[in-house]
């Protein structure tokens, strides 16, 4: 364990960030089970993707910087990457959901037009 010689304020700050981030990620994932339909379930994991991940990354930057004795902020890269990509996944999933819902409704209304195969 290399988390022994850090000052008390950093210990407290990093601990609270970690706890906050993990609780947010847990609530977000619990939203997957608790929310009623697909479109509202998309909002659940966003919690972990934004503030949850942000808190964990800040804690990681803090501890790594202190134990290395200089500013280490490579974690910013993960933040940038996730911020740039997670909206894309969410958009694709919601569009797929909308598209398939429309297809299903169309099939129920006119089943004889199903000439896909």
């Amino acid at each position: 364990m290399s988390v022994e010689n850090i000052p008390a304020w950093a210990d407290l700050l990093a601990s609270s960030l970690l706890v906050l981030g993990s609780v947010l990620a847990l609530i977000g994932s619990a939203g997957l089970l608790r929310l009623p339909d697909l479109f509202s379930r998309i909002h659940g994991p966003t919690l972990g993707n934004t503030l949850g991940l942000g808190c964990v990354l800040l804690a990681s930057i803090l501890i790594a910087s202190i134990s290395a004795g200089r500013l280490v902020f490579q974690e910013i890269l993960i933040t940038l990457f996730v911020v740039a990509t997670s909206p894309l996944t969410a958009m694709l999933i919601i569009r797929a959901g909308m598209y398939r819902e429309r297809v299903d409704r169309g099939k129920k209304a006119t089943p004889q037009q199903d000439t896909m195969h």
């Binding site: 364990m1 988390v3 008390a8 210990d11 407290l12 601990s15 970690l18 706890v19 501890i63």
Partner: peptide, 12 residues
């Protein structure tokens, strides 16, 4: 020294 961090890590 108050070593909160190991507990926080386990909790997380």
């Amino acid at each position: 020294m108050t070593a909160l961090l190991p507990w926080a890590i386990s909790f997380a």
